[in-house]
Design a protein around this nucleic acid. Structure first.
Lengths: 204, 204
DNA sequence: TATTATACATTCATGAATGTATGTATGTAA
DNA sequence: TTACATACATACATTCATGAATGTATAATA
C-alpha cells in the first residue's frame, strides 16, 4: 500500500480506533494484540504503529473520543444558577445513564473501562482523567446540594457533602450493575426509576 | 528440593496464594507471570504448576479464600424474620463495607476483582460466582424491603424492588469509590454515614 | 517536474511467558 | 526394606507479541 491523502489517513486512524473498540470490548485490553486490532481494521501493524506509539496510547485515544459518564453530567448541567438544582441534577444524571444505554460507543468504552482493563502503572493517564472528572463532578454536585439546602429543598438528614458522595456512588453502582447486561436489570429502565426515587428522598 | 510432608505442602500452597494476592494487586492479573508469583512465594514455577493448573485456577482459588462483600452481607443477615428489617439490613451492609476497609485480604482481593482483572471468557467461573451472589443478595434485600413495607416501615415512594436495586447499586458504588483510596473519601468513614442517611430516607 | 515527506506494508530480531517433560529426593504404606 | 507416590526443581520447546528497521508507492510541495 502506498501513501494516502490526509483525509484517507484520518479515516484509517478512525478505522483503527473503531476496531480497537470492538476487539478490546470482546477480548479485554491485555489479551488483544495489536495484530488483532490491525486485522479487524483491515490494515497491518505498520499502520497501527504509525498512528499510535503503543497499545496504551491507542487505548487513550480511543477513550478520548467520548465523554465519560461524569463528564456527560457536568456537560448537561447548565452553568447558570438554577432555582431547581435537584431537578436539574436528577435530569443530568438520568440523561447520562440513558446515554450509556443508548449510545453504543459510549456503552462499549464504559464497559472496557469498567470490566475489560486493569488499572496499573501505565494506565496512569486514564486513571488521572477518571479521577479528575469524578472529583469535578463530586464538587459540582456538592455545590448544587448546598444551593438546594439554601432553597430549603434538601431533605433533613442529608448534608450536601453526604448527598454528593452518595449520589456519586449510586451513579457508579448503577453503571456497573447496568453494564453486566442482565435481562432483569436494564440501565435504561431501572436507572431512571432508581434516580427518581432517590431524588424524591433527597427532596424536602 | 524434595518431597515435603502434607502439612508443608499445604503451607507452600498458601504461600503461593498469598504471593499471588500481593503480585496481582500490584501489577494486575494479566501482567504478572507465574514466574513472578513463584519468586514472591520463594518457590519455582514447578511448585505453582503442581498446585494449580494455570493462572486462572490460581486466581479462582485465591478468591475462594474470602467472602465477597455481598456474601458478607448475606452471612451477617440472620435467617430469622426480624421485626426491624431495615435496621438489620443497614447494619449488615455497613459491616460488610467496614470489613473491606479493615480486612487486608478482603480489601486486596476486592481491589483485584474491581480494578486489576479483565472479565473475559476464561473468567467465566469468577463471573458466575459474582453474578450469583449479587443475585442472591438482591433477592434477599427485596424480601426484607417487602417485609419492611408490610410493617409500615418503608417510606412512600419506594417499592421493595426499587429499594433493593438502589441499595445494591449504592453498595457497589461505595466499594468502587472507596477502593480508589482517596484521602478525602475513606470507605470506613464515608460509607457508614452514607448508608445511615440512605436508610433514614428509606424509613417511614 | 524533481524532490521530499507521508502513510503505510513487510521483515526481522528479540524476549517473555507458557506448558510440558523430566529429574529427584523424600515421605509413606506394605 | 522395598515400592511407590508425592512435592517439588530444572530444562526445554514452542508460541506469540513487540518494536524497530526497512521498503515503497504516492501525495504534497517547491
Amino acid at each position: 500500500m502506498a501513501r494516502r491523502t490526509k483525509d484517507e489517513a484520518e479515516q484509517t486512524r478512525h478505522a483503527i480506533l473503531d476496531a480497537a473498540e470492538k476487539v478490546f470490548h470482546k477480548h479485554g485490553v491485555a489479551r488483544t494484540s495489536l495484530e488483532e486490532i490491525a486485522r479487524a481494521a483491515k490494515v497491518t501493524r505498520g499502520a497501527v504503529y504509525w498512528h499510535f506509539r503503543d497499545k496504551i496510547e491507542l487505548l487513550e485515544a480511543m477513550c478520548q473520543r467520548v465523554f465519560l459518564p461524569q463528564e456527560d453530567v457536568l456537560e448537561s448541567l447548565a452553568a447558570a444558577e438554577s432555582h431547581t438544582p435537584l431537578h436539574d441534577l436528577k435530569k443530568a444524571c438520568t440523561d447520562a445513564l440513558c446515554l450509556i444505554a443508548k449510545d453504543r460507543r459510549r456503552r462499549r468504552i464504559t464497559t472496557i473501562l469498567y470490566q475489560r482493563c486493569e488499572y496499573v502503572e501505565d494506565m496512569a493517564a486514564i486513571i488521572h482523567r477518571r479521577r479528575e472528572c469524578k472529583d469535578r463532578m463530586l464538587e459540582r454536585c456538592q455545590r448544587l446540594f448546598e444551593r438546594a439546602k439554601k432553597l430549603k429543598q434538601l431533605a433533613p438528614g442529608w448534608t450536601p457533602r453526604m448527598a454528593a458522595v452518595t449520589l456519586q456512588a449510586l451513579m457508579s453502582g448503577l453503571i456497573i450493575n447496568g453494564l453486566e447486561g442482565r435481562k432483569e436489570f436494564d440501565l435504561a429502565k431501572a436507572a431512571p426509576t432508581c434516580l427518581e426515587a432517590f431524588f424524591k428522598s433527597l427532596s424536602a
